[in-house]
Computed example of a mutant assay.
Amino acid sequence: MYTGIVQGAFPLCGLVDEPGLRRLAVDLPESLQDELSIGASIALNGVCMTVTRIDGPTVHFDAMQETLSLTTLGQLKMGDSVNVERSAKQGAEIGGHLISGHIDGRARVCEVQRSENNVSLYFQLPEALCKYVFHKGFIGLHGCSLTVASMDKERGIFSVCLIPETLRSTNLSALEVGSEVNIEVDRQTQVIVDTVERVLAEQGVNRE
């Protein structure tokens, strides 16, 4: 599990494509290597990844074909920055909201509004996920816990507002129209929506 508070954005320093597999490597600072071991979980752009090798500051990961198909990890190029968060420890402060690192899909940037001190990003959601996104609800974008600023259910477009600190510490500042991000809907919201739908469906069947 993760808190959605990204601990930094770091450039991809290793990238090897093999049949059905992509090997990724990132140099991490000492602050993120404390007690890090092979098998540990680290989120890269919101995707829960397993550490496969550690060479000094360089940490290696393997992404399978299913992960590459569902997320943006297959689009990465050498030097691209990825958002990094170590998995949450027992008793850690939850500054954002709980994120599993299991991506639900990708959303495409359809508009960027920049002002002096913040940026508003608008995204086109996959139709199947629209029912889980609500105004003032939580959503994970590239591993960042964010509040939904607006949601147009008819068009399937939602927005978030980014403060200077988020722009400084994550890779969201580099997004432009056409960029894709990994999205994870709020699990509590998903459970509530699915449960209500199931109950209503059952009631409908019982009334027939």
Rank of each mutant, 00 (worst) to 15 (best):
Y2W: 11
Y2F: 15
T3Y: 00
Q7E: 15
F10E: 07
P11V: 09
C13G: 10
G14P: 03
L15D: 11
D17C: 11
D17M: 09
R22L: 03
L24H: 08
V26G: 01
V26A: 02
D27E: 15
P29T: 04
E30M: 12
Q33H: 02
E35D: 01
E35I: 01
L36Y: 04
A43W: 01
N45R: 13
G46H: 07
V47H: 00
C48S: 11
M49E: 07
M49F: 03
I54Y: 03
D55L: 06
D55K: 11
D55M: 05
G56P: 05
G56R: 07
T58I: 11
V59P: 02
D62I: 01
D62Y: 01
M64T: 12
Q65A: 07
T67G: 08
L68T: 03
L68G: 00
S69I: 03
L70H: 08
T72V: 04
L76Y: 07
M78V: 07
V84W: 04
S87N: 10
A88W: 01
A88R: 04
K89W: 04
A92L: 09
E93I: 15
G95K: 09
L98P: 05
S100T: 15
G101C: 05
H102M: 14
D104E: 11
D104Y: 08
G105C: 10
R108A: 11
V109N: 02
C110P: 01
E111R: 15
S115G: 12
S115F: 14
N117F: 13
N117V: 11
L121T: 01
Y122C: 06
Q124A: 15
Q124N: 12
L125T: 14
Y132K: 08
F134N: 06
H135G: 04
I139H: 08
G140L: 02
L141A: 00
G143H: 00
D152Q: 06
I157F: 04
T166M: 09
L167D: 07
N171C: 03
L172W: 02
L175R: 07
L175P: 06
S179N: 06
E180K: 08
I183P: 01
I183W: 02
I183E: 03
E184R: 02
D186S: 02
R187E: 13
V191T: 14
I192P: 10
D194K: 12
T195M: 08
T195H: 02
R198H: 15
A201P: 01
G204R: 12
V205E: 15
N206F: 10
E208L: 15
